[in-house]
Design a protein around this nucleic acid. Structure first.
Lengths: 382, 382
DNA sequence: CTGAAAGCGCTAACAA
DNA sequence: TTGTTAGCGCTTTCAG
């Protein structure tokens, strides 16, 4: 049984292959009646287009994806970028190319970088919008010119961006609250150390926590919310002061990635393990504090995954026309001491060839650091 | 910059495309010297063959992936399959085709299905090996004939399978233990309800839990481990009996997906919310028990992700020759009441167009069920 | 041993 | 509105 293609359909319908093509794709320049006739024939003949042939014919226009993310906070945005590039590499065969125009810091010269990307003729832009207000016009402009804008990690809600890939900040805050309430005694007092409350993400996490914790803790309360502006020294001083002022404090929720100074303050006052500390995200510097029991849990947004995912969905959209839903919320992971080493961010997992959510084996998960597994990269022609 | 293909290589080497083809594919009828010359040129030019064109020319789909998973336990293996197919669809443009040979139940007629797949000429097999002992010979045979075998969800450790995608069962058990110890009071007695201890996965989870719980609970202990053999009625009866016998029981860890009967038993005895129940995986039937507080947490292996990942890494291996590490452990998610609705398995997330780890927005995460977001599937003629 | 040329099934530009 | 035709990049057959 021969494979049936446009040619045979054309023969059956007594038209030319061109007309069949028009019918199949709803192109203009064909009578409604013949279109329906052809469609019916195609249907009944069980026509399945040959994707390979189509791909070949359409001429694989290289897919250029622009990337604009900050270079600072390496362990966070670095992971994000790695995720993006890992996926891009995987999709190389599809003709995916990435064009990077990083910003020095979050929110700095973003508009300039984006306009450079647009000049490069990208079909989509992955961006961490640090200054959504300023960006909105150019992002809207991009979308109008049919360039898909995908926000990553944080949103630009006022813009027409196609979608956002991020954690649901409110859920992250609530998760922390739920965990906290099971770590501390009834009626316990806890506090939050945040970055800046005018940052959407920080505010939402704080709000989520403050909303849920009192409900679950039997009369417990959030006694203070402190802004540390992502500064190491400021965080350390304020935290130390807080702990001295509030000796009754049973828990602390740090909802930005700036948790190290807090850990140091806690240890300095001999409170490690005595006060329940819940942090955000995960990087190697946190490991000793997990091991000492200073950090009880962390709500991890997994930037690597976010990067991978953003790249994946945007290419899927461009190549296969899969629609982009307005939000892609990735479920944050809860990192405890017992699952610490399954996360690639600890560096004990396979960081190169490993795919998205996975890591390689490391038998000694609980007790200390297992050996790192290394894989050789095979580079070949074909 | 034009894409470089056999034609340009031919021009560079001053030979014909035919010769380039011979060189690239180690075909006979070419001098060793010219072959090496051509290969060097191809290499330095960064030649990447166009899979679509090759597929069209040879008339064969370049990448066929066989899938052999059980049809039973829909909510689990169904999710796994959906993940596999979702990813396959995404990779369609690369010429990926899947061939399904499902088994009726886990461990039944697996060898037959695998041998059918081998006859189909697949390049790789994704399999949930229910009966590893029986499968080992044929899996080894497959690998010997250069067919990659990827175990999913559970392993066939004695075989030469290329890799396994699963959760690290021991870590899952330890996670449960760590959570349990923070849910219950010091020195609390807890019990485990499992499936069959001769199933690798169940045994490892049980072991992980039993090892860690006593260490973290200040003298608490695991007083019983009950096998329920994945039977609803058996689980219900045994659990009920257990609860009556041990009135001091503070926590229960169910490490198979068969948690509903346990929930019912707990509710029947009026212990909902009084005893800390930690379950495994996630499906819609569990939602009411989360909402009532019967289930305190669940360790979720995310079969959808495992399926997606398995397909992804195997195609990446075939297409880009990325090496397959011997294990791919996916970090299990901890499901609590506050993050329940971010998981696609609850049905409140976007189950079709959504990608791997993501879900769409649902503002009311804590309080009851938010509205379901629906995306229209784009059904195309072709 | 190497070159030339004919497609694979589909799309798109141009002709009728 | 419809038909014709020239490729897309690779493989393969048949001459040279």
């Amino acid at each position: 049984m021969r494979k049936i293609g446009v040619r045979q359909i054309a023969k059956l319908a007594d038209v030319s292959p061109g007309t069949v093509d028009r019918a199949l794709h709803g192109r203009k320049g064909i009578t409604e009646s013949t279109r329906r006739r052809i469609l019916a024939i195609a249907e009944s003949a069980g026509y399945k287009p040959d994707l390979a042939a189509r791909a070949l014919s359409t001429g694989r226009v290289p897919i250029r994806i622009g990337v604009c993310i900050p270079q600072e906070i390496q362990y966070y945005f670095g992971q994000l970028l790695t995720g993006i590039l890992t996926e891009a590499k995987r999709l190389e065969r599809l003709g995916v190319q990435v064009v990077c125009r990083p910003t020095a810091r979050l929110g700095v010269e973003e508009v300039e970088r984006v306009s450079e990307l647009l000049k490069e003729g990208v079909q989509a832009i992955l961006i961490v919008p640090g200054d959504p207000a300023k960006l909105t016009p150019i992002l809207d402009e991009a979308e109008k010119e049919n360039v898909r804008v995908v926000c990553v990690d944080t949103d630009a809600p006022a813009s027409r961006r196609s979608t956002v890939v991020s954690v649901n900040a409110e859920v992250a805050g609530k998760l922390a609250a739920e965990l906290m309430s099971s770590f501390v005694a009834s009626q316990a007092q806890v506090a939050i150390i945040t970055g800046m409350l005018n940052t959407e993400d920080h505010a939402k996490k704080t709000r989520g926590f403050c909303e849920l914790y009192p409900q679950l803790s039997n009369g417990g309360s959030v006694v203070e919310v402190i802004e540390a502006h992502e500064e190491e020294e400021e965080a350390f001083q304020k935290c130390r002061e807080l702990l001295e002022r509030r000796s009754s404090l049973a828990g602390l929720y740090v909802n930005t990635v700036n948790c190290l100074p807090v850990c140091r303050a806690i240890c300095a006052l001999g409170l490690s393990g005595k006060i329940a500390l819940i942090t955000t995200d995960l990087f190697r510097g946190m490991i000793p504090y997990f091991e000492k029991g200073t950090i009880r849990a962390s709500i991890h947004g997994r930037p690597f995954i976010q990067g991978e995912l953003a790249m994946r969905i945007v290419v899927d959209h461009i190549v296969n026309h899969r629609p982009l839903p307005p939000f892609y919320y990735v479920p944050p992971h809860i990192v405890l001491r017992s699952n610490l080493y399954v996360f690639r961010e600890t560096g004990y997992t396979d960081g190169v060839s490993s795919s998205t959510v996975a890591s390689v084996a490391h038998p000694a998960a609980w007790e200390g650091a297992p050996q790192q597994t290394v894989h050789n990269r095979q580079d070949e022609v074909d």
